[in-house]
Computed example of a mutant assay.
Amino acid sequence: MAFLSSRRKKVRLAPELDDQDLGKLLKSLLATTRTGTIATTDLCVAQISRLLERDPEDWDRRTHRMSVLADYLTAVSLTRSWATREPRNANALVLHAWTQLAHGRSQGRLDDAAAVVDSCLRAAQLVPEDPTPWVVLLGVGRLERWEQPQVFGVWNEVLARDRWNREAYLNMLGYLTPQEAGSRIQVLEFVDALTARMPANAPCAATELTAQVHQYTAVLDRGGFEALVARNHWSQTMAAQALDRAARAWVQPGFLHHARALADLNTLAYALMAADRRREAHPVFEALGGTVTAWPWNIGGDPVTEFDHAQRRAAAGL
């Protein structure tokens, strides 16, 4: 086991996943934003702009990059400065709106929902074919608990531009839960309708398994005896079938090729370990190469520690 452990790649949180260009940009932003000068802001904006202008119609990649950058930039005023200086730049408007949304999620509310909506609508007018302004609006609707007709209207705007947008499906999944604005029946209907039509390797392929992980963690949260036997969730028909389908297909080389494929593999590895299917989890960890996403590993504690512990157990085949 020591030999195997020595060959294991370093376990690390990597929000960029396998997007090397995004990873380089994040490192550069970390190095340059520390000075806080105007020239530094200009340099950062130029770097961000160059990245977002690549592959302009790869909506899946664009959504991933926007989401990661928004989370990364919530503590600085860079996006506000950019959007103020370039009010007709759709990239600046969407990124600033998304940064505000990311901050709002961390606080449980938006400081100025109307301003975020306005930025999104202006960006949508500038680049009508771009789904990302509507993806941000969907996040706003979820956080602000908009009524379902309004949320579904935004949802349809996303689908008209990017049929299998991963971020949009996961936002709708969360919105439809009993904890937010829906019910368990609505979640089941939503997932059933998706799986009946969706290509097996679509960017939103993990929606069904994500729903099962949410149900599993809801059992854990109840505590007591139910939490002790929560593993039984994965033996129920719907959960077992979702896990079977993912475990069988996702580790095949090249099967998943969307921007957040490694995030979905993290979800699969977590679910397999929760179900005590350790031997099946082992090739998933191998495919991940030590790349960790905060969710779902943070359900149990520090995500890197939880991932590393689970990976070792899977390698041991216990």
Rank of each mutant, 00 (worst) to 15 (best):
A200P: 02
A200I: 01
N201T: 03
N201F: 03
A202H: 08
A202S: 14
A202R: 00
C204G: 00
C204L: 02
C204P: 06
C204I: 00
A205N: 04
A206M: 05
A206R: 01
T207C: 06
E208A: 12
L209M: 10
T210K: 01
T210Y: 04
A211R: 02
Q212H: 10
Q212L: 03
Q212W: 00
V213C: 07
V213S: 05
H214K: 02
Q215C: 08
Y216Q: 02
T217F: 08
T217K: 05
A218D: 15
A218Q: 08
V219E: 10
V219P: 07
V219K: 06
L220A: 10
L220C: 09
L220R: 09
R222A: 12
G223D: 11
G223W: 08
G223A: 14
G223V: 09
G224M: 09
G224H: 10
E226Q: 15
A227E: 12
A227V: 06
A227I: 06
V229R: 14
V229E: 13
A230I: 06
R231W: 05
R231P: 06
R231F: 03
N232M: 10
H233L: 10
H233K: 04
H233D: 03
W234K: 05
S235F: 05
S235P: 06
Q236I: 00
Q236S: 14
